[in-house]
């Protein structure tokens, strides 16, 4: 069994309706990589085209559970990226997980929050690596990571009052 299939089956109990969204993914392969929000679930993506094996979309509430499963599976947190979908009024947070050697498997975990209420739970309790990455995302997007021990600016000046990667930021 390929590693991504093992990871997918470990993640699938978190998404009771995941099988339906998976069917959608296989029918319209174009929909896999479209930046539009889709229903929570796990979709297998073509590695040679996208660079990741699994694309997991989850609700912010499910984030801790997903990260917990990936921690048990031996993954490490590679990066956290924010994306501002200004027209849709949403912020997306992309977490990339990867394995340190052995099998190849990159898991992209995505979640969406309203721009007006950008709050997601912190992963610092599971992955210490999340500490700085979350501070950076807070710095650039104003995303509030609930429960973070020290959510302060990391790269911008401490007295900055702006979040420069928001699409409506004007210097």
């Amino acid at each position: 069994m390929e590693r991504y299939e093992k990871t997918r089956s470990a993640l699938s109990p978190l998404f009771p309706s995941g099988h339906e969204s998976e069917a959608v993914g296989t029918e319209e392969s174009e929909a896999d990589s479209s930046p539009q929000q889709r229903l929570p679930g796990v979709v297998v993506t073509e590695y040679s085209r996208t660079g990741s094996h699994l694309d997991v979309v989850c609700l912010p509430d499910q984030l801790m559970a997903v990260a917990g499963v990936l921690e048990d599976e031996g993954f490490f947190l590679e990066s956290i990226a924010g994306v501002d979908w200004l027209e849709q009024g949403q912020l997306e947070i992309i977490y990339d997980f990867n394995l340190l050697g052995g099998d190849q498997c990159r898991v992209m975990v995505r979640t969406f929050v309203d721009r007006s209420e950008p709050v997601v739970p912190t992963l610092t309790g599971i992955f210490p690596a999340a500490d700085w990455h979350e501070r950076e995302t807070f710095d650039f997007y104003g995303l509030h990571f609930q429960g973070h021990p020290d959510l302060t600016r990391i790269l911008l000046p401490e007295d900055a009052d702006y979040h420069p990667l928001l699409k409506d930021f004007m210097p």
Binding site: D32, S33, S34, P35, T50, G51, S52, D55, I94, D96, N98, R106, M108
Partner: peptide
């Protein structure tokens, strides 16, 4: 490029 998510290491 087509709309989508890409990663390269």
């Amino acid at each position: 490029p087509e709309a989508g998510y890409y990663y390269s290491a």
